[in-house]
Design a binder for these strands. Structure first.
Length: 577
DNA sequence: GCCGTTTTCGGCCCGACTGTTTTCAGTCG
């Protein structure tokens, strides 16, 4: 997919321009990069079909950017971008990832201390050179070091949401090869972990050579790391590695099982095998030298005396014991989702009109869509005040009326009136009670003052949950993957109050958030707290991100009873305050 | 560099917070 590559180049162009101190252009490039990111059609295909005219139609792309895209598609590089890289030989992406460091600081750091990358920055900070720079001080130096520590922990891992779309295409490509019988992703990606180290793919094929030839010549490859007869490895231009292995049909199940992990799960399984006088490895399940299972995963788990276990559960955290008793949870699926309750329209900072969002939701077979625009505190997102909120509600009423007519008078699809209000420092909500009463549901979330002490932050959220209008807490722990940790808070206490006040906690599907995370979902389920899986989409195409939230819910053992947007609309609305 | 129900030029989401200042620049969302 060329979209991600082009988005990245434009994003980097924006960064270079910002370091240069150019005004307005960076935002233009950033906006275009975001368009590419959410575009459902491949830019290369658009160009093939409609030429440069089609490119110009992409939102935020004008004459100059369209030329640059064509230049990239035809020649593989953009001259102006290459010039930037030469002129400013800094790893801006790496440095900007440090929280508290922005374009201006990067410029100063380069000019005064020749800092080009994270390593240089850490060295300078550790030797106390940063504090003496103008506008810098000891505190800033400390913050930089702290932030670098966080980044280091995340290094070498990639977001599930960045990897999965590419790997899905790889699997489709492999399955298209004649005589390929099976192709499946394994490893942490199959278990849908929120971040992935590298990708492993398993293939069954008559002629492994053909598979290897195809694999090392796929689009999007940066370099071939190894090419063998049945095992190869490539690095994608997005940075991550994909390993492929061709296995025999009779060992496919055991190879799937073995390479899917987790390590802990597999160790536990092998111990069970030993206790039954058997041996389990990637080639099969053996009784002495006789292979008694291996073709499918199901037969391996069966012979080990348990039910087949969904990959998301394989962490050796109780799933094996339940599988032995045949009492595994019935995990939710994407197809169980009946609607999305956290979608931003163009009434706030979203990209699409309510109607456009609704059309996408209907295509996804949803029964309802909850519009949750920001409220007035978030000026940057053009948050709604009481007056504009009412105007928006009127539009929703009109659309609902039209929808009923379209469905012959039946309410087959409905738009729900909501908003994502802000939880202020004292736990209050940034908008009038009267306006809140007119909504179908209210989400409240924290968007400022993230660094409060544990006790204060806990009380702040608790106070919000005790508000009789607050139905849902959005992205409850506030983490941003690979950037910042959860807020300091007493999560167990928050769960108790959520249960008491019947407040629903959100599982935010945005790939950078995935908040609640798997462990917290499991805790919430255990505490009897209900959850909702939302996308937080700011664009109609982002409604598809639902898959990521569902995957984390599955990792957290969630069943249909735990997730309110798996319920029919009426039942869900009755549950909300 | 993009965009247009104030249209081919002149705008461009903007307030809060932090750390460093002694009146504000830089970052964040």
């Amino acid at each position: 997919m060329s979209n991600k590559e082009i988005a990245k180049i434009f994003h980097n162009m924006a960064l270079y321009l910002e370091v240069e101190g150019v005004i307005f252009k960076p935002q233009a490039y950033e906006r275009a990069a975001m368009s590419f990111d959410v575009l459902s059609e491949d830019i290369r295909e658009i160009y093939k079909k409609e030429g440069i005219k089609g490119i110009r139609k992409i939102s935020g792309v004008g004459e100059s950017m369209a030329d640059k895209i064509v230049e990239y598609l035809e020649k593989g590089k953009i001259k102006e971008y290459e010039n930037f890289k030469r002129k400013i030989p800094i790893d801006i992406e790496e440095l900007i990832a440090v929280e508290g460091v922005g374009p201006k600081m990067i410029k100063t750091l380069y000019q005064k201390l020749k800092i080009k990358n994270l390593q240089d920055l850490e060295k300078a900070a550790k030797s106390g050179k940063i504090r003496n720079l103008p506008k810098f001080g000891e505190k800033k130096e400390q913050n930089i070091l702290q932030s670098i520590e966080f980044l280091k922990r995340a290094k070498g891992r990639y977001l599930l949401g960045d990897i999965l779309p590419t790997v899905k295409e790889v699997i489709i490509g492999l399955k298209n090869i004649k005589d390929v019988k099976e192709a499946h992703v394994v490893g942490s990606l199959r278990r849908m972990k929120e971040t992935i180290g590298d990708v492993d793919v398993l293939v069954v094929a008559e002629k492994p050579q053909k598979v290897m030839d195809y694999f090392v010549s796929m689009p999007g490859i940066e370099k071939i790391l190894a090419k063998g007869a049945t095992k190869s490895s490539v690095r994608m231009s997005a940075g991550f590695d994909i390993d492929i292995r061709v296995v025999s049909e009779k060992s496919y199940g055991s190879a799937l099982q073995y390479f899917s992990g987790s390590k802990e799960h597999n160790i536990a399984l092998r111990k069970i095998a030993i206790s039954k006088g058997l041996k389990l490895n990637e080639y099969g399940l053996f009784e002495g030298v006789k292979m008694i299972a291996g073709k499918s995963e199901e037969e391996i788990y069966e012979k080990l005396g348990m039910a087949w276990i969904p990959a998301e559960l394989r962490e050796n955290s109780g799933e094996i014991e339940l599988a032995q008793k045949n009492k595994l949870p019935e995990l939710i699926k994407v197809s169980d989702i009946k609607g999305d309750l956290h979608v931003h329209s163009d009434w706030d900072g979203g990209e699409n009109s309510i109607l456009e969002l609704v059309e996408s939701a209907i295509k996804m077979d949803y029964q309802y869509l909850g519009i949750a625009d920001h409220t007035k505190f978030l000026r940057i997102e053009n948050g709604l005040d009481e007056k504009r909120l009412r105007e928006r509600n009127k539009e929703i009423d009109k659309l609902n009326f039209r929808l009923r007519q379209g469905f012959g008078g039946q309410a087959k699809f409905r738009i729900l009136k909501g908003c994502e209000a802000n939880i202020m420092v004292d736990g209050s909500i940034d908008i009038d009670d009267q306006a809140l009463k007119e909504l179908d549901f209210l989400i409240a979330g924290i968007h400022s003052q993230l660094k409060m002490k544990k006790k204060e932050m806990t009380s702040r959220i608790i106070k919000a949950m005790q508000n009789p209008h607050v139905d849902i807490i959005s992205h409850p722990t506030g983490r941003i993957l690979q950037k910042r940790d959860e807020y300091e808070m007493d999560f167990d206490r928050i769960l108790r109050v959520a249960k008491e006040t019947k407040t629903v906690l959100e599982i935010n599907s945005f790939p950078l958030r995935l908040d609640l995370k798997d462990i917290n979902i499991k805790k919430a389920k255990k505490a009897g707290v209900k959850m909702v899986i939302n996308t937080d989409a700011h664009h109609k195409d982002s409604l598809r991100l639902m898959e990521y939230g569902v995957s984390q819910a599955r990792r957290g053992w969630a069943e249909r009873t735990d997730i309110v947007n798996c319920w029919p609309a009426e039942k869900m609305l009755k549950m909300l305050k």
